[in-house]
Each structure stands twice: as C-alpha cells, then as structure tokens.
Design a binder for these strands. Structure first.
Length: 463
RNA sequence: GGCGGCGUAGCCAAGGGGUAAGGCGGUGGUCUGCAAAACCACUAUACAGCGGUUCAAAUCCGCUCGCCGCCUCCA
C-alpha cells in the first residue's frame, strides 16, 4: 500500500512521492511569538512530528524547517502594550515554545529560522515582485497585487468576488484591491524598523515564510504544514507571492491539522481564550497528552478535555505495564514452547503500516496497539521468553514510532533494598493482623510515588 | 451572506457500498485481610432526520436540522 496523504490543494488523498527521493523538504509553519505557546500549538506540532517520524520510518530523509515569526504587527502591538522590547518578548516566548516542544518529545527541526534574521532575503523577494510588476509601493507600504496572480484562491477555494463581497477588512485607501496584502509595512513612530528601498519598515505577515522556505529548502518544496486556520489568508498569500516571484510551484503537498477547541470554540491567542501548553505539560504526563492528540485523526477538530487527558494517562500506563510485564517475562527461562505467534505480529505490523500510510491514521494504528495488548494479556500465561521478547519489542517500537517513550523509573530517595526492607516489616505487621499499620504504610508510600500491590505471591512495590 | 467541514453507543473515536475497530465508563467476575492495580466476560439490529439510487447504504445522491471552521490576528 502506497503512502498517501490528504493534500489541501487538491482536496484528495494523494500518493506521496517527493521531488528528489529520498529527500523530503518539509516546512512547518511555526509560531508568531507575541504570546505564550498554548496547548493547541502542541497539537499542530505533534502532527508534524508524526509526519516526519513516519516519513523517516518509510526510508525518507526529512529536512525539516520551522520558522519563528518574531516580528509582525501582533508582536509589535503586544510589546507596546506590555511596555517591553519586542525582541525580549519574542525570545522569551520562543524559548518557552522550544521547552514545550522538547517536553512533548517533538523531534527538533533542522533549523528554526527567525524572520528578523532574514530581512535581507525578504527585501530581495519583495524587490523581485516589484520588478515583475506584481507588487506596488504606496504611502503605507508595499503590497502584492493579487490581480497579477490568476491562481489566487486555488488553495482555499475562494473566489475573489466572494471575498470582496464578504470583506470585513478595513480598507486601506492606498491599496488597489482590498485583497492586496502587505509585503512591507512602513514603520510608524516608535516602531521597530529596518532600512529598505521603500524606506524604514518591517516585513508584512506572510512574506517571511516564503523567504525562509526558499532560502533553506529551495523554490519548490515537498510538504508545507500548518493549522487549518492558516489556509486563508496566510498560505494562500504565500503561494501567490512565491509563485509569482519564481514561476514555480511553491509546495507540492499542503497538510493542515484540525484545531483544538475550547468549550466548543476555537482556542486562539486573539480571543485570549487559551490554555498555556506549559501548564498542561506540568499537570499531565506529556506522552499521555500526545496519546490523546493521536487518538483523534489529525484533520478532525478536537475538544480540549482534562478528563480525556486523565484517561490518556491511564491508557498509557496500561501500555507501559504490559511492556514491562513482557520485559520481565522475556528474562524468564524458556520452560515451555509456548505459542510462537509471529503471525499475530506480522498482521499487527501490516495493519499498523496500512493505517499510517493512509493519511496518518493514528487512531486506527493505536486501536491496533490496544488489540495487541489484549492478545498479549490473553496469552501471557503460556508465553515463553522469546515470544514475550518479540511482543515487547513490537509494542515498544510501535510506541516509539508514534513518538512515545518508555516509562522512566525514578526511585528518588529509595533504593530497592530499602523498599524490600520496608515491605518485609510490613509483611510482619500483616501476619500479626496489624492491618491498620500496614495500610498506613501502603498509603504513605503511595504518596511518595511507590505503589504496593499485595498479590497472592506476596507484596511487590512498583514506581 | 459566500466557501468548506462535521454529526457513529453514556462519553471519546476508527470505518466510509456487503452487514458496526478500539478506548473510557458501566455491569458481572478472577484475585484479595482490605484496597489498588491488573486481567476476563458482557455492554450499538445500528451510524442526526427524511427521501432516493442499489440485490445490498452508516457508507453514494438530494433535502432538512444541529454544530464548527474560514472569509479579520491565529497551529
């Protein structure tokens, strides 16, 4: 089964073949850092992480560039409101983003270009558009002339007439069409600026992505990703300005993730209704957050729910415990020639790969993992060591492909011998029917992160 | 108003012409001093509603209702 992905440009699932295999050039629309990263951003970047990991699994070599838009209207505005230097604000939020991204186990991009470090490239691109007659300069800035790009609207499937009719944009009198968008904005008093052929100013919102994508990946790339709220106008405008400048396709596959909703509405920086990613990641196991994200198809909208995050933690624990159980079993001596179930594993991989190849169907792939766990538990009794090892490796690598890690056990102040000692004493208490004390010990250890399980074979501790 | 998407059990969620994956919860059970965990079994005659096409529809078509996104900054 070929690898297929849904391309917003064609509104179809298409077989993915990069321009120059095995290289895949992937540009992920990063954050505009006027505010803290919220949990919705994390969903987007977990999605891009999955795409990258799967492509890598399939033998491609992914060159991944993710921008940081550290200068634009919003950054300037926010810095002004806070009375802070915009650079300081931008770097602070960018740093928090990187921190969250690392906590989520999102693989780092090859490079995170910043708009402020590509002013020269941006100016060159704008000049190119002006020279080609696709852009014009006015008192307020330089604008892209959409009438010079007949394909305008091809990504968002919008008709120019409809856009003009429904326009809620305040009209800048100097623009030829209300839909023309800024490539370069003249600086007002007190605003940050760079020198340019059109006077002191700063880049418009969309141009930095075109300039940085072209600089780091070339004029035509394989995959361009982002949230579905970016389809219009951001990505539409990127296409217009890039293709008008180069005459070549800007990106071959456009992938967009569904948004994370809060109370039925969109989570966004503009409404102020958002949950900072760091808060969530400090309260919930990051891999559980990832598991919950991956339990809904990436193109579907998803409701933020703490109940689901809790469920996710439990589900993840169950996966971990199954793998740990298999790990212990695989150490055992081979006493029986228990069922060697390689067919099961082969079928599991086939289903897993088919699901992932079909537009990254992670919910289906995860469903397969749960089924395999059920199978394992059903057959655990009469499984020999090598079979257990096979299942363990299968489960562990499937989780790894999805970007989830194994549980790290931290004993903290305890040592195994100390815990054994405590359990010994507690066992004495139990034998003397001093259950209140024994229960107290169990309860207190639980608060310290040590779980005691009283099984027929005796008590065991777990972290 | 224009364009697009979605509506599957109490909840979450795959599937998307051939007879409903999976998870959570719930119920019953195994185990247990109790508990927790884990495990086992059961848990949708049915896919928003109404029509149509078909031997066959949750899946295709039409209409209706509801929700959401974009059209303004946003992952």
């Amino acid at each position: 089964m070929p690898l297929k992905m849904y391309n917003t440009l064609t509104r179809k699932k298409e077989e993915f073949i990069p321009l120059s295999p095995p290289l895949v050039k992937m540009y992920v629309c990063g954050m505009t850092v006027q505010d803290r990263p919220h949990i919705g951003h994390m969903r987007a970047y977990v999605v891009s992480d999955i795409v990258k990991r799967w492509l890598t699994y399939r033998g491609f070599r992914v060159k991944h560039i993710q921008n940081v838009t550290d200068i634009d209207d919003k950054v300037v505005e926010k810095a002004k409101t806070l009375g802070r230097d915009y650079r300081e604000l931008a770097e602070e939020n960018a740093a928090e983003f990187m921190r969250c991204s690392d906590i989520m186990g999102i693989e780092r991009a090859d490079f995170y270009p910043r708009a402020t470090q590509h002013i020269q490239e941006i100016i060159e691109l704008v000049s190119r558009l002006v020279q080609k007659g696709c852009a014009y300069s006015t008192d307020t800035g330089v604008y892209f002339d959409i009438s010079r790009f007949p394909d305008y609207g091809k990504l968002s499937r919008k008709r120019i007439d409809d856009l003009i009719k429904g326009a809620r944009v305040q009209i800048d009198e100097t623009k030829h069409s209300p839909l023309d968008f800024a490539l370069w904005k003249r600086a007002k008093e007190g605003e940050p600026f760079w020198e340019s052929p059109w006077g002191r100013g700063r880049p418009g919102w969309h141009i930095e992505c075109s300039a940085m994508s072209m600089k780091h990946l070339g004029e035509t790339i394989d995959i361009h990703m982002g949230g579905e709220d970016l389809i219009f106008p951001h990505h539409e405008n990127e296409i217009a300005q890039s293709e008008a400048a180069t005459g070549k396709p800007f990106a071959r596959f456009w992938l967009h993730n569904g948004l994370l909703r809060l109370l039925g509405g969109k989570m966004s920086k503009s409404t102020g209704e958002f949950i900072p990613a760091l808060d969530v990641l400090q309260r919930f196991e990051p891999d559980a957050v990832r598991l919950v994200f991956l339990s809904t198809h990436y193109r579907h909208p998803m409701e933020y729910s703490e109940a689901r995050l809790e469920e996710g933690e439990e589900a993840l624990t169950r996966m971990w415990e199954c793998i740990e159980m298999l790990g212990e079993k695989s150490e055992e001596e081979e006493k029986t020639k228990g069922g060697y179930l390689s067919d099961d594993i082969a079928n599991f991989w086939k289903d897993f790969e088919d699901a992932m190849d079909d537009d990254f169907n992670t919910p289906k792939a995860i469903g397969g993992i749960y089924s395999l766990i059920k199978d394992v538990n059903l057959n655990a009794e009469n499984m020999d060591g090598s079979t257990a090892r096979l299942y363990r490796d299968t489960l562990a690598s499937s989780l790894k492909i999805l970007g989830m890690r194994m549980r790290e056990k931290e004993l903290g102040v305890f040592t195994p011998r100390l815990l054994d000692l405590i359990l010994d004493v507690r066992q004495k208490l139990r034998e003397e029917n001093k259950y209140d004390l024994a229960d107290k010990i169990r309860e207190n250890l639980s608060r310290l992160g040590i779980t005691i399980k009283d099984t027929p074979e005796g008590s065991v501790w777990k972290i």
